[in-house]
């Protein structure tokens, strides 16, 4: 028998309340998470903490793309992070944690595990 990994989903907000290409911050089990909805409707969730400044602000960055990959730019010193992977595209040694996200009954949920 394999152990069933217990996933715990936390509700964030209604999907329709997310403005495309703009983030919101949510508190997921005490951790600040930035949640984005891109123009094609896809959801992304990453740690809200900007590793370069140590400040919880990534949700307030500008969403765009770099060579086709969706990104958010930190509003503090402008480093760019890939939304899908959390990788910093300006400094390969740095990345931020990503979180699974889904829509259930019109509500966005993020999982902390």
């Amino acid at each position: 028998m394999t152990a069933q990994l217990q996933r715990h989903w936390t509700a964030v907000c209604r999907y329709d309340d997310l403005v495309p290409e703009r983030g919101v911050a949510a508190l997921i089990d005490g951790v600040a998470v930035a949640v984005f909805r891109t123009h094609d409707g896809v959801l992304h969730a990453l740690s809200n903490m900007d590793p370069f400044s140590g400040v919880s602000v990534l949700s307030r960055g500008i969403v765009g793309d770099r060579e086709g990959r969706p990104t958010v730019a930190s509003p503090i010193y402008k480093q760019v992070f890939e939304l899908a992977t959390g990788a910093c595209l300006d400094d390969p040694s740095i990345s931020v944690r990503t979180f699974p996200a889904r829509v259930l009954n019109g509500v966005v949920e993020v999982c902390s595990v």
Binding site: V19, P20, E21, R22, S53, V55, S56, V57, R60, G61, I62, V63, P75, I76
Partner: peptide, 19 residues
């Protein structure tokens, strides 16, 4: 237009180093 704005313009205030 709201989605185009830098955080300063988006919150109509100046972001400081501690967020």
């Amino acid at each position: 237009q709201a989605t185009l704005q830098d955080t300063n313009d988006h919150f109509l205030a100046n972001l400081q180093r501690n967020g």
